[in-house]
C-alpha cells in the first residue's frame, strides 16, 4: 500500500487537471477542425484568409522578439548585481517583485494613464512647454508609440519573474567555480560569459520558456493600450470568439498560439541543452 500512496495523493490534482484542462483542451482542438458538424480545415483557412491574421501574427512575433531579449538582458544584469549584494538582498528582491503582484490588465491601465491624452506624459510635455496642447499618442496614426508603450509595460511588468528565477539559479552555482575563474585569469565579462552563463543554462531554460510562452499570450496590456489598433494573436482569438461568435476560428487561433509555443519551447530546450555528465 505505501507504494501506491504517493499516486493516491496525487490523484485528486491529476483528475482536476484532466477534467478542467485536458478535456477543454481536447474540446478546443476538436472545435478547430469542426464546422457545421463536419471535419474540415475551413476554420484555419478562414483565419489565415482574414486580412488581420498576418498582422496579428507578426505583431505577436515582433513583440516577443523585442520584449524577451530586453527582459533577458535586464534580468541577467539585475540578478548578477543582486547575487553579489552582501546586505539588503531580500529587500531589493521584494521591491523588484512588486509588479508581479499586479494583473496584466491593471498594468496596462497604469501605463495607459501615462500615455493617454490626459495622461502624465502629456501633462509633463505641456508643463515643460514642449507641446502647446496634449497630443494623441496612442492613435492609429502612430502605432509605433502604442508598440513602445506595450513593450515598456511588458518589460516593467514581467522582468522580475525572470530575475527571480535567475537569482535562484545563480545561488545554486558553487562559489568555487567563480573563484577558479578569477584565479585562472578570467575578467568579469569572461567569468560571466564562460562560467556563469553556461552553468545557468537550466534556469535560463525555465525563465525563457516561461516568458516566451507568456509573450505569445500577451493580451490585456495590448488591449488596454492599443484597443484594436495593434492586433495580436490573443486579441484576435478574443475577437473571433466573442464579437464574431466564430468559435471554430477562435479555436484555430488558439491552436496556432499553441503550435508556436510548443515550437519555441522545443527550440529553447535544444539550444540550452546541458549534456549528461556536464551537469553540476
Amino acid at each position: 500500500m505505501p507504494r501506491l500512496l504517493p499516486y493516491l495523493l496525487l490523484l485528486p490534482a491529476t483528475a482536476f487537471l484532466c477534467l478542467f484542462f485536458l478535456f477543454p483542451f481536447v474540446q478546443v482542438a476538436h472545435d478547430s477542425v469542426m464546422r457545421n458538424g463536419v471535419y474540415t480545415l475551413e476554420n484555419f483557412s478562414r483565419m489565415a484568409g482574414h486580412w488581420k491574421f498576418s498582422t496579428a501574427f507578426w505583431n505577436t512575433m515582433l513583440l516577443t522578439a523585442v520584449v524577451v531579449p530586453i527582459q533577458l538582458a535586464m534580468a541577467l544584469t539585475m540578478a548578477s548585481i543582486v547575487t553579489k549584494l552582501q546586505r539588503g538582498r531580500s529587500t531589493i528582491l521584494y521591491i523588484f517583485a512588486i509588479p508581479l503582484g499586479i494583473s496584466d490588465l491593471a498594468a496596462g491601465l497604469i501605463w495607459l494613464s501615462v500615455f493617454e491624452q490626459s495622461g502624465f506624459l502629456n501633462s509633463l510635455l505641456v508643463g515643460l512647454g514642449v507641446v502647446d496642447q496634449p497630443i494623441l499618442l496612442l492613435g492609429y496614426q502612430n502605432t509605433w508609440i502604442i508598440f513602445i508603450a506595450i513593450v515598456l509595460a511588458e518589460v516593467w511588468r514581467a522582468t522580475a519573474i525572470m530575475m527571480v528565477i535567475l537569482v535562484a539559479g545563480m545561488g545554486l552555482i558553487p562559489k568555487e567555480y567563480g573563484e577558479a575563474a578569477d584565479v585562472f585569469g578570467a575578467s568579469r565579462w569572461q567569468k560571466f560569459r564562460r562560467v556563469t552563463l553556461p552553468m545557468l543554462r537550466p534556469s535560463l531554460q525555465t525563465a525563457l520558456i516561461l516568458r516566451v510562452i507568456l509573450a505569445f499570450e500577451v493580451f490585456a496590456v495590448v488591449v488596454a493600450l492599443g484597443g484594436t489598433q495593434l492586433p495580436v494573436l490573443m486579441s484576435e482569438t478574443y475577437h473571433w470568439q466573442f464579437q464574431m461568435q466564430e468559435r471554430g476560428v477562435a479555436a484555430a487561433f488558439a491552436m496556432v498560439i499553441l503550435a508556436v509555443s510548443v515550437a519555441f519551447t522545443i527550440l529553447i530546450l535544444r539550444l540550452l541543452h546541458v549534456p549528461k555528465g556536464a551537469r553540476v
Binding site: E179, A180, V183, F184, G185, P198, M199, R201, A278
Partner: peptide
C-alpha cells in the same frame, strides 16, 4: 594558479577545455 579543495573542475567543459581554461583566458 590554484588547486581547490573541491577541485572546482568546471562541469560544463570537457577535461581538455578545463585544463585549457586559463590559457584561453
Amino acid at each position: 594558479a590554484m588547486v581547490f579543495q573541491n577541485y572546482a573542475v568546471f562541469p560544463h567543459l570537457t577535461v581538455f577545455e578545463n585544463i585549457a581554461f586559463g590559457l584561453r583566458m
